[in-house]
């Protein structure tokens, strides 16, 4: 299987560094030391809310620097549309979250690079369609991108183990995603130090962690568990069928024909000429065979 979005070393490096920045952006209430400049102002949430869009833009630009093939872009568009279209189905109903299983399956079939971009485009599209742009959007995008990227990095199991693996991953990823988003919203929602569940700037990490968990418990735990359960159930029930459908689509799409052409011309050198030499005789052939099709 060819990956529709390849991660070159530079893009990988950018992803790793952005990951570190992301951890700071999500986790600053826990990481803050008492004597830090940010500890007493109310600026920290703002700085990170403005910083994250830039980081996301740079990383996405770096991933697509090699140029994304039209099939990959169209597939990204269609899967993002799917997520954006079914997202409202769950909104309002406690914890029914229908987006995550598309992210997990998409990342699984099309690879981590595609998954990262998919998480971003899907949440962004959804926000554009519903008028839900706000400071929380970059956090959601980054979180969703990590979920899909992680799904792409799972070990290559096949058969019956695969849906189980994906379901377990979905459950864990949904919970972590919920916790991360709570973490980002926490200082906004309750203001530093103003209630028993507010974060204490520069306080001991364990204390703040306990408060965060209590805050989650009090606000969104129901939703988070609902999300984990729906995603897991959806992955278990629809996983086998949808994985087959997605893989059929990936095979038919035959991503990245330029690379396919190179592989095919070298494999079939006996009866083909390289398409880049225009002055060969007119009986010559161009062979562009998708490598995935030539697999048995």
């Amino acid at each position: 299987m060819t990956a529709p979005v390849r991660l070159r070393p530079r893009a990988t490096a950018a992803l790793v560094i952005s990951g570190a920045i992301g951890i700071a952006a999500f986790g600053w209430p826990l990481l803050l030391t008492p004597d830090a400049g940010l500890a007493h102002g109310t600026d920290a949430p703002w700085i990170f809310a403005l910083l994250l869009p830039l980081v996301l833009a740079v990383v996405l630009a770096e991933i697509s620097e090699g140029g994304m093939d039209s099939k990959a872009v169209a597939m990204l568009g269609v899967l993002s549309a799917l997520g954006a279209a079914i997202r409202p189905l769950g909104a309002g109903t406690a914890g029914i979250e229908t987006v995550f299983f598309v992210l997990v399956l998409g990342g699984r079939v099309f690879g981590p690079g595609f998954g990262f971009v998919l998480g971003n485009t899907m949440l962004f599209t959804s926000a554009l369609l519903t008028g839900g742009i706000g400071p929380w959007l970059p956090y959601q995008m980054l979180g969703a991108a990590w979920v899909a990227l992680g799904a792409g990095l799972l070990p290559p199991l096949r058969g019956r183990a695969e849906p189980v693996l994906l379901a377990a991953y979905s459950a864990a990823a949904s919970l972590v995603y919920g916790l991360l988003l709570n973490l980002s919203f926490w200082p906004f929602a309750l203001g530093a130090g103003s209630t028993g569940l507010s974060f204490q700037p520069g306080g001991p990490v364990v204390d703040n962690l306990v408060r965060l968990l209590a805050f989650s418990l009090a606000t969104s735990l129901g939703w988070d568990i609902g999300r984990a359960v729906t995603t897991t159930v959806l992955v278990l029930i629809t996983g086998p069928v949808l994985l087959r459908t997605l893989r059929r689509a990936a095979r038919k799409a035959a991503f990245d024909y330029d690379r396919g052409r190179r592989a095919a011309t070298s494999a079939n050198a006996s009866n083909t000429s390289a398409p880049t030499t225009p002055d060969t005789d007119s009986a010559s052939a161009i062979v562009i065979v998708d490598p995935s099709r030539s697999e048995p």
């Binding site: 630009a61 697509s64 140029g67 872009v73 568009g77 549309a81 954006a84």
Partner: peptide, 25 residues
Amino acid sequence: LRSLPAALYEVSVAVVVAMTVAPQL
């Protein structure tokens, strides 16, 4: 979306496509 930097062209096209396709889906 049209004001995004050109370096994000591919990604923005994907979003444009998604916004067109979502109602069709």
